[in-house]
Design a protein around this nucleic acid. Sequence first.
RNA 1: GGCCCUAUCGUCUAACGGUUAGGACAUCGGCUUUUCAAGCCGGUAAUCCGGGUUCGAUUCCCGGUGGGGUCACCA
Length: 436
Amino acid sequence: MNLDIVTRFAPSPTGNLNIGGVRAGIFAYLFARHNKGRFIVRIEDTDRERSKKEFEENILESLAWLGIEHDALYRQSAHAARHEELLRILVEQEKAYLSREAPNEEGGREEVIRFRNPGTVITFTDAIHGEISFDTAELKDFVIAKSFSEPLFHFGVVVDDWDEGVTHVIRGEDHISNTPRQILIQEALGAPRPHYAHLPLIMGSDGAKLSKRKGAKAITEYRGLGYLPEAVLNYDALLGWHPEGEKEIFSRSELIEAFTLERVQKSPATFDETKLLWFNREHLKLLSDTEFSKRLRDFSGVEADARLIPLLRERSQTLKEASDALAAGEYGFLCDSVSFSKELLLKGAKADAETVKNNLQKAAQLLKGVADEAFTAQEAKRAVFDYATGQGRASVLWPLRVALSGREKSPDPFTLCALLGKEKTLERIAGAVQML
RNA sequence: GGCCCUAUCGUCUAACGGUUAGGACAUCGGCUUUUCAAGCCGGUAAUCCGGGUUCGAUUCCCGGUGGGGUCACCA
């Protein structure tokens, strides 16, 4: 492992992880893995009021689901002693000071610790945006802790990144304006300055930063909706980043292989659920039959008939769609007997009952000629297709399909033949002929 | 409002001074085993505006405008 590269993902457990929030984690992870470095997760739980265990669990669960594995996990609250030690040193050195003031909000302290701001111009290099400078004078002497035992965000970040050996701070662009403040603290502490990379934010359809309040779904909700983790990961990674070439479907290891900070976009990207759905379908198609049925089983507890798997996978955009179709009985014709009306049988045939009856009988005769062991979709088609074409396909194929499936919408008639087998196919056609 | 970031089809993006401005999603047509999907083929659709620099700007510089972020005893 290359310890010259250490990245971290530092979420605060104040909400569920969504597509926008997890992205910093994804990019930091991809960057670390690409460079054979270390990736750590740090839960920033210094705000006791707002931090909730359930959110921490949601964050960890989301990362695990996406396959983003960390090399170490820290909780910022566990570092209280270290924070206090450094806070006291800063105060002793008069780089920070205790400030008595009137609490300007509920629960505010009468005494807080302020950083003595030298008010210099801070310039840093961002891997994505290039050189950025700020005049920090306008920041005044900002508060870095409510008390020695209650450090605030900026102070905690700097100390922990330092102690954990973080070399590359990869986070959302909303932190650009926090960076000069943190650099000031680093300099006061004598801590090294890490490399910075500020990622473009992800916008919702309203054009503003994606947030739970604006209806952004939690990562775990996508799991519940039947999305594949590899699809969510792939889509999120390609939002604001693009490798060379026109390939779009990437596995996790391919993303790791291809990832570089150089090709990260500078401007924000809008989240498009429709495209996510497309990625999901593409990843669904990549699954083997056994893998697909395993995922479906894990998702809904349903064990699908093995014969249906290729159909289900081809016709569904999500695991939920597949399990819903199953639950709605869309493929019930496979095992159950079918029942349908004469109207449906003739509905799309564009021919009268007598003609349809003849066509069905002829089709049955032709299918009978196919060898039992060669009763595939291809052979079934070969047997009746020329006849159907001669008669007008609709007058043969539509009733054949309804006779076999009993449904207005279904897979094509030849696929149905193969699925049902010769005996059942002929049986059902005979049943339909009876009705006419 | 101050400060910071940013600007190619509706959306995600390619182009690193010279292209008929390419691809994907979506959309619209057509084809198919005249159903539903899928699939295949094709169409519509973009360089924010104004100045420079240059033989030549999507590309470099400046200004404007638009968008976003941030200005807590939250992170």
